[in-house]
């Protein structure tokens, strides 16, 4: 049984169950992205444990982490803009099993995002914002992760594209990948989340199922503006 438990500098402790969509929500500067970066090893935690798939991973080098089955789709996409879309996807499957499965994974990504197939030979930097986000998600999926983390996938996208991206995230989970998502788009995130945590200035202030938080008075006033 999959059990993730993260403890970051400010005594933040939370877990993500296998096959779930878990969400971290909160205002700017609450520490959401930092938590994701800590899990993926880019930021070193001052203390505490990160347990993934039964193993402590806080000491694993970031470049080795991808082989444990953890993928990170970072904020603002962070694509390799001077490589083509397809090369970006290849960069997502550099090691081990993911490399062997590259052709299959790519077909799967192209099925999920037909747009990327059309644009496979275009430089990533010349794609539209929505296409770039699709490519970033595709690149994350190329490593065949068991847990994929999305950092602000709706950032800077038109509302219609945001809806598409959330639909894709649901699809990703439906195909068996666990999802941890960090978002400022609280309403749509809670709508798809099985489990959600509210973060304020580096502390967890609330947790519950997506639906229950969506109904919560405090969440409504503080984050949904109703």
């Amino acid at each position: 049984m999959f059990y993730g438990d993260v403890q970051v500098v400010w005594d933040v402790s939370f877990s993500v169950g296998r096959g779930e969509i878990a969400a971290l929500i909160g205002a700017n500067g609450a520490g959401k992205s930092t938590i994701l970066k800590t899990i993926s090893g880019i930021v070193k935690p001052a203390g505490g444990k990160i347990i993934f798939d039964g193993k402590e991973i806080q000491h694993i080098e970031p470049y080795e982490l991808i082989e444990t089955g953890l993928a990170h789709v970072p904020e603002a996409r962070r694509l390799f803009v001077e490589m083509t879309a397809e090369e970006n996807l290849d960069m997502g499957s550099l090691k081990g099993n993911a490399k062997k499965m590259r052709a299959d994974s790519k077909a799967m990504v192209f099925e999920l995002f037909p747009r990327l197939k059309e644009r496979r030979n275009q430089l990533a930097g010349t794609l539209s914002g929505g296409e770039q986000q699709m490519l970033a998600i595709g690149r994350g999926l190329m490593s065949k992760p068991t847990l994929i983390m999305f950092d602000e996938p709706s950032l800077g996208l038109a509302p219609i594209l945001v809806r598409d991206i959330f639909a894709v995230i649901k699809k990703v989970r439906a195909e068996g990948t666990t999802v941890l998502i960090v978002e400022q788009n609280v309403k749509q995130t809670l709508a798809i989340a099985d489990r959600a945590y509210v973060l304020a200035t580096g502390k967890l202030v609330m947790e519950g199922t997506g639906a229950s938080l969506l109904d919560d008075e405090h969440v409504k006033t503080a984050y949904l503006g109703v």
Partner: peptide
Amino acid sequence: GYYFVAIREDQDAAESLGINT
């Protein structure tokens, strides 16, 4: 060469994709 370019374009992203930068 691909690894070099990936590191140039975004070192953190390259690192999280499994490149020992």
